[in-house]
């Protein structure tokens, strides 16, 4: 059970939150090509190391926020409110 620092609530057990994966940027659906859209949908960097990811503080403040987490060690740093 890792600890995730919610920028509003402070440190919380990860079971109180929902991991939402790597932060991706949503292309403009009006203009995006299918290939751009599917890259957004499916392709992931999936690095072993620091990644910026989104979390939802489900049992706490119900806010989405981002943190940086090292996927090799589960260390976290820099949590930011959305």
């Amino acid at each position: 059970m890792i600890v995730v620092n919610c920028p509003h609530c402070g440190p919380r057990n990860s079971s109180d939150l929902r991991p939402c994966g790597e932060v991706t940027s949503r292309p403009d659906p009006a203009t995006a090509s299918l290939s751009e859209w599917r890259t957004y949908l499916y392709m992931r960097e999936n690095p072993s190391g620091w990644v910026t990811e989104a979390w939802y503080c489900r049992s706490g403040c119900r806010r989405y926020f981002t943190i940086e987490r090292n996927t090799a060690t589960n260390e976290t740093r820099r949590s930011e409110a959305s």
């Binding site: 929902r18 939802y56 989405y64």
Partner: peptide
């Protein structure tokens, strides 16, 4: 509910 909050908070704040 979570999906609505997601788009409201992160996409169209």
């Amino acid at each position: 509910w979570e999906m609505l909050e997601d788009y409201l908070q992160t996409y169209r704040p």
